[in-house]
Nucleic acid binder design. Structure first.
Length: 192
DNA sequence: GGCCAGGACACCA
DNA sequence: TGGTGTCATGGC
């Protein structure tokens, strides 16, 4: 186990403090947020979530009952609103039928088979909604890996396995580390 | 005013 | 598998 991966975690944690991610009141809100935040500033996602909450629409049943046009209107601030409305409908149906007895990788495959759900989205849901030990990789994580460890991989799962194999298998650490990486990246806009 | 955000997918060679 | 275009709003 490569200590520097864990050491960086403790460093970021003591510098920025606990982030208590994911900011959501329910599991389903995590699912919705995971779709809405795809390549999108979180501020814009918050506007969309606020709209959904204001209309009492942040439940699977309500999302499914909304017309396509109405859903698009509510989530418009998050951008890509047409495809995200489509994706929300699809993932919501799948979410209602999810079999929680499946093991982590089976759940991952289940999520990845939903159109509009890629690895980062699936892993965010696994970690933050379903409390499964999966390390979430995003572009910030790739940037950080290059910046601090001078490493670059080709595949998403290579990054994921790198972090997972160099950290204690601890869900809380996975949650905090990913959040701290985002905080770090925002403070260091273009560290190269 | 331009750049980019907590990606995913289709299409092409 | 690797490269590129598309989707779209709002913050900075």
């Amino acid at each position: 186990m490569n200590r520097q991966v864990f050491d960086l975690y403790t460093e970021l944690y003591s510098k920025y403090g606990p982030q208590h991610w994911w900011p959501a009141e329910t599991e389903y809100e995590v699912v919705v947020g995971a779709i809405l935040t795809q390549n999108t500033n979180w501020k814009n996602v918050e506007r969309a979530i606020t709209n959904l909450k204001k209309e009492q629409c942040l439940t699977p049943e309500k999302i499914l009952s909304l017309s396509k046009e109405k859903l698009e209107e509510l989530i418009r601030p998050s951008g890509f609103f047409r495809q995200k409305a489509e994706r929300l409908k699809k993932i919501t149906k799948a979410w209602l039928n999810i079999d929680r007895k499946l093991d982590t990788m089976e759940l991952r495959n289940y999520l990845l088979n939903i159109k509009g759900v890629g690895k980062e989205t699936a892993d965010s849901i696994l970690l933050y909604a379903l409390n499964k030990p999966i390390f979430v990789i995003d572009n910030y994580t790739r940037r950080l890996t290059k910046h601090f460890f001078n490493l670059e991989f080709k595949e998403y799962d290579q990054y994921r396995e790198y972090f997972e194999s160099n950290l204690p298998r601890d869900i809380e650490i996975y949650k905090e580390y990913h959040a701290l990486i985002v905080v770090w990246a925002k403070e260091n806009k273009y560290p190269k």
